[in-house]
Amino acid sequence: MLRYANPTRFLQLSSALVPWLGAASAALFAIGLYLGFRVPPDYQQGETVRVMFIHVPAAWTAMMGYGLMAAASLVGLVWRHPLADTAARAAAPLGALFTALGLVTGSLWGRPMWGAWWVWDGRLTSFLLLEFLYLGYIALWNAIEDETRAARVCAILALVGAVNLPIIEFSVDWWTTLHQGESILRKGGPLISSVYLWPLFTMALAYTFLFFTLWLLRIETEILRRRARNALLAEGP
């Protein structure tokens, strides 16, 4: 693991991985979309069940993104490694985007189901708070000029957020009344019909692969930018 903490090694590994990850993601998207539009409409939800295939993966990826950001922040704080700082920073805008997509699709899913564009449902509300956490992280990073300091300070924020997120989720669940329930991961088997599981998991994998592809590309970009800056500094004004 630490072998790849060297930026040059990381670039080699990442450049080798990115085409495969990207291709796998594209293929999974194609299969997932095909499966998603082939399944019959749900007897209760009708055609809107198809929104689930993009809503749930976006939401999963958004949470995974925060987890990765917090893990990278922890590594950056403990081992003071710039690559981990870069990784944490690169995950934030992606996480914010996937959270936003989860919110928009959730709203579009909810309109026909609940009869309202926005319902203070447990999942939507915690995702709105997650989006604010991402935006606060990005704003804090942009406000601090010194890059190393920004990385460390934001790492603390990411970790505080990571500790608080389960509490937020719990409190929102506690508060809400219209909560749908985690129907996929519920004990005693999934509640949703199994015909919908294949497109759902395929799309979830496609979203996850896309997230990693973009994440690696953004880390590469940051490494190259840093090199260009260092080269400029070495040349002198």
């Binding site: 929104v51 699709t105 579009l108």
Partner: peptide
């Protein structure tokens, strides 16, 4: 409308 908009936006 809702399905297509959701896919379009995503």
């Amino acid at each position: 409308f809702y399905v297509w908009t959701a896919y379009g936006v995503s």
